[in-house]
Design a protein around this nucleic acid. Sequence first.
DNA 1: ACAAATATTTAGATTAGTCTAAATATTTAG
DNA 2: CTAAATATTTAGACTAATCTAAATATTTGT
Lengths: 219, 219
Amino acid sequence: MNSFTEENYLKAIFKLLEKGEKAVSTTALSARMTTKAATVTDMIKRLAEKKLINYEKYQGVTLTEKGKAIAISIIRKHRLWEVFLVEKLHFKWDEVHEMAEQLEHVKSEELVNRIDAFLNFPKFDPHGDPIPDAKGVFNRKKSVLLAEINTGQNCIMTGVVDHSVNFLQYLDKVGLSIGKEIKLIEVVGFDKSIQVQLNGKEKVFLSHEVAKNLLVNKQ
Amino acid sequence: MNSFTEENYLKAIFKLLEKGEKAVSTTALSARMTTKAATVTDMIKRLAEKKLINYEKYQGVTLTEKGKAIAISIIRKHRLWEVFLVEKLHFKWDEVHEMAEQLEHVKSEELVNRIDAFLNFPKFDPHGDPIPDAKGVFNRKKSVLLAEINTGQNCIMTGVVDHSVNFLQYLDKVGLSIGKEIKLIEVVGFDKSIQVQLNGKEKVFLSHEVAKNLLVNKQ
DNA sequence: ACAAATATTTAGATTAGTCTAAATATTTAG
DNA sequence: CTAAATATTTAGACTAATCTAAATATTTGT
Ligand SMILES: [Mn+2]
Ligand SMILES: [Mn+2]
Ligand SMILES: [Mn+2]
Ligand SMILES: [Mn+2]
């Protein structure tokens, strides 16, 4: 059995690898885990010992098949619990992450599969992130950043890049949520801020910083 | 914040105190926790330091108000999660304890209160054990052992003393479950085994050992 | 290409939780 | 009431996860 700490390292490595790098550096991992590089070196030795990661001194790490499967199962649990908390217990999308951080470590394959069925096999979590199925297969979606859309284009909001409570609450305030129809009305040349129209109704101004953190699908 | 281990010690002390003793001995606690007495001595020093228990060398321990509140909150979470697992995810009563042992340590008062509401404020868990409310108040029930009932008496099954998977599965097999009507037909003088009638229908033989582990309310 | 900057590993400590073995205190029984 | 049995605590050690400081390796920039 793996400890919570080991599971969290595997998840962190998975997410860093997802970003494109071919191996995860000690420093990148220590930043993500908010620990010191020396601590990371100790831990990656342990994970390599357990054959959950591939590690060569000074060369960074990658996940073995076994390690990857564990990372995906943690992510699956995290996202399913978030759906449960929002859909069934009526928490808001900015309130669920910390609870899911704990719930993702509950050990029972059967439990997560029953939750999955109870929720009707959702494909995305409350933040628009894909939920891998029981076999670890992700529903790969081809969303783009709202910041990269052309004027006049109609889109559907599909997710967020920044998951912070602050950002999520701001989106609530301006009326942005997953599934909303967003039409790009205008891009201001000076600072790249934009004006959008939501569901063909209210018009809203968004900074470039915000637009860079919103994922959409073109209509 | 308290560790899982500390929470488990507090819960164990609570349950041992419930059994009637005025203080819990190091040995009793080490048996319950399946650790060594020396380990318990270390831990009770830590818990006393944190003012969660009252401890005097060689005199055993009791819970402070703070310690008692924590123990009750863990028990509340454990039992509510068990109800959730049985009622919503359709697990059987012999399958839920291990999952609840993990879920009881998830830290969020709000979460447990939402689960409580989601389940419609149940008063008892799937094994008939009372669930304390958000203020820590237990629904005290006055159940008696089936072994102490007189011939001819009609009762309702309200709980179990032994919570083992083996016992629970045996009860399923013979058709005994919480809420069932049990009429005591006959007590065999030789070995105190009994014959009972369930819901006015099937008759079943039960050993004295089984009867000593079933809780009922007289009708 | 090599010195300076940066990244990584090693060495040595610390804390929580556990153990075994030994010391000491309490309880029990003759 | 004391000796033997039992319970409890103390001492010393181990592992996982963390840290700081020092050593070493890699990368970068002139
Ligand atoms: Mn999350
Ligand atoms: Mn999420
Ligand atoms: Mn239980
Ligand atoms: Mn129970």
